[in-house]
């Protein structure tokens, strides 16, 4: 065997490897697989508080979101006020949110509107727990797509005790709570 043959053989192996790998990858890849994003299933979330600490981002990409359609606009809001709060006002000693991210605004007697200040919220789920225990459950956690860096393996999902985080196609909307049934659905 002279060197010429050797070169030809190597060339052949190389071309075959490139073709096989390229063809395999082309067959395996699916264009419709583009754009999967991580979302929290509000029906499964148990408000353990790990979303605040386990995201690779600091502060977390998980924020509290508010489905206004479900909200009762209560004055005595169990998502806003600490249990046994002395007064129903904006005093820090009465607020449940540790960073003051949940804001309240008087609308009309006796209703108050609650909004989440996303800059401050870090996804600790304290308000979500309060709202779900004694209220309508209109506050819930969700992964904000504009903040999420879409890791290969969501580090919160891996640590989520109730398996509430899963990948959904980006074309499908946010998994917000909806007014109709109280169950999660497309938003």
């Amino acid at each position: 065997m002279d060197s010429r043959d050797k070169i030809d053989r190597r060339e052949f192996i190389r071309a075959a490897a490139v073709l096989a790998a390229g063809g395999g990858a082309w067959m395996a890849a699916r264009p419709d697989a583009e754009g999967m994003v991580w979302q929290i299933d509000p029906a499964k979330c148990i408000q353990c508080g790990r979303c605040a600490t386990n995201c690779v981002l600091n502060p977390s990409a998980v924020k509290c979101v508010h489905t206004y359609e479900i909200c009762g606009y209560c004055d005595l809001c169990s998502g806003y006020l600490q249990p046994g709060a002395k007064a129903r006002d904006t005093g820090a000693e009465n607020e449940l949110c540790p960073v003051g991210a949940l804001k309240r605004k008087f609308i009309e007697e006796p209703f108050y509107e609650y909004t989440v200040d996303e800059e401050r919220c870090f996804g600790c789920a304290k308000c979500v727990k309060g709202c779900g225990q004694f209220g309508n459950g209109s506050l819930h956690l969700q992964i904000k797509r504009d903040l999420c860096v879409n890791c290969n393996e969501c580090s919160i999902a891996r640590n989520c005790p109730s398996d509430a985080i899963r990948r959904v196609p980006a074309r499908r909307g946010y998994l917000f709570k909806q007014w109709v049934s109280g169950e999660e659905s497309e938003g």
């Binding site: 979101v65 508010h66 206004y68 209703f111 904000k144 879409n150 909307g173």
Partner: peptide, 11 residues
């Protein structure tokens, strides 16, 4: 009063 729309920013 009208209820605010929920923000759903795209990725």
């Amino acid at each position: 009063y009208e209820r605010p729309q929920m923000e759903a920013p795209p990725p």
